[in-house]
Simulated scan of single mutants.
Amino acid sequence: MIEVDEIDRKILRALVRDASKSSKSLGEELGLSQPAVWRRIKRLKDNGAIVGRRLRLDREKLGLGVMVFLGVKLAAKGRVSLEDFERAVSAIPEVVSVEHVLGLYDYRLKVVARDIPDFERVLRRRIMTLPGAGQVEANVLLSEEYRYGPL
């Protein structure tokens, strides 16, 4: 675990909001010099606290108006390996996230689709035909509020 002080937290909060900010603009925003910000960011990267940059897309503007959280329980855990299921489900382009979870379901998938009929097609033709796919529960996202991390 890396030690993170209040200045590091401010830098991380600012980068979570906009990862494209330069160390110069971060320095101006936080009252620090550009080299000081750069050194802190480099230390955070070198120690694994920052592991990359992400781009957030507006899925609705890209024609993907439906997001569904899908709980999947494997039908025959002993006959199908988790790796086989994960590999197969990860190959479906509409599945944007695969999480192996503890609880009622074995996996939690995040699936995007143009609309409900498109989601139904993905569910019936792709997800339900996967090796070991058993019981599923779908939760359609109604609205979302983006929060900028736990810091």
Rank of each mutant, 00 (worst) to 15 (best):
A75L: 12
E145F: 15
A36K: 06
K45D: 11
K61P: 00
V136D: 13
L62S: 02
S22W: 06
R56S: 09
V16G: 02
V136P: 10
L82P: 06
P131W: 15
Y107R: 05
G63I: 09
K10Y: 05
K45I: 04
R147H: 14
K42R: 05
V96Y: 03
S33Y: 08
P117D: 14
D106M: 02
L141Q: 09
P93I: 12
G103F: 10
A49K: 07
D5F: 09
E83G: 11
S33Q: 07
L15S: 05
R54K: 11
L44T: 01
V37D: 02
S23Q: 03
M67D: 01
L151D: 12
K77I: 08
L102N: 06
E3C: 11
A19C: 04
N47L: 14
Q135S: 12
L141M: 13
A133K: 04
R43N: 07
M128Y: 09
E120S: 13
L104F: 08
R9F: 11
H100E: 02
L12K: 13
R121Q: 06
L82R: 12
E60H: 13
D8T: 00
L70C: 10
L32Q: 12
E60K: 12
E3I: 14
S22R: 06
D106Q: 06
L64V: 01
I2H: 11
V140H: 10
V80G: 03
A76E: 13
S97F: 02
I116P: 07
N139V: 04
I2K: 09
A49P: 00
R59H: 06
R125W: 15
A133W: 07
T129R: 15
M128A: 13
D118F: 04
E94K: 08
L57D: 07
V96A: 12
R40Y: 04
E83I: 10
N139C: 01
E83T: 12
G134E: 11
K42M: 06
E83P: 08
P131S: 14
F85T: 08
S20L: 13
G134Q: 11
R17Q: 11
L82C: 08
I50K: 10
G48W: 10
G52R: 12
H100S: 06
A113K: 05
V136T: 15
V68S: 03
A75T: 01
K21V: 01
A76L: 08
R124S: 04
Y107M: 09
I41T: 08
I116K: 09
K42F: 04
V66D: 05
P131R: 13
L12W: 14
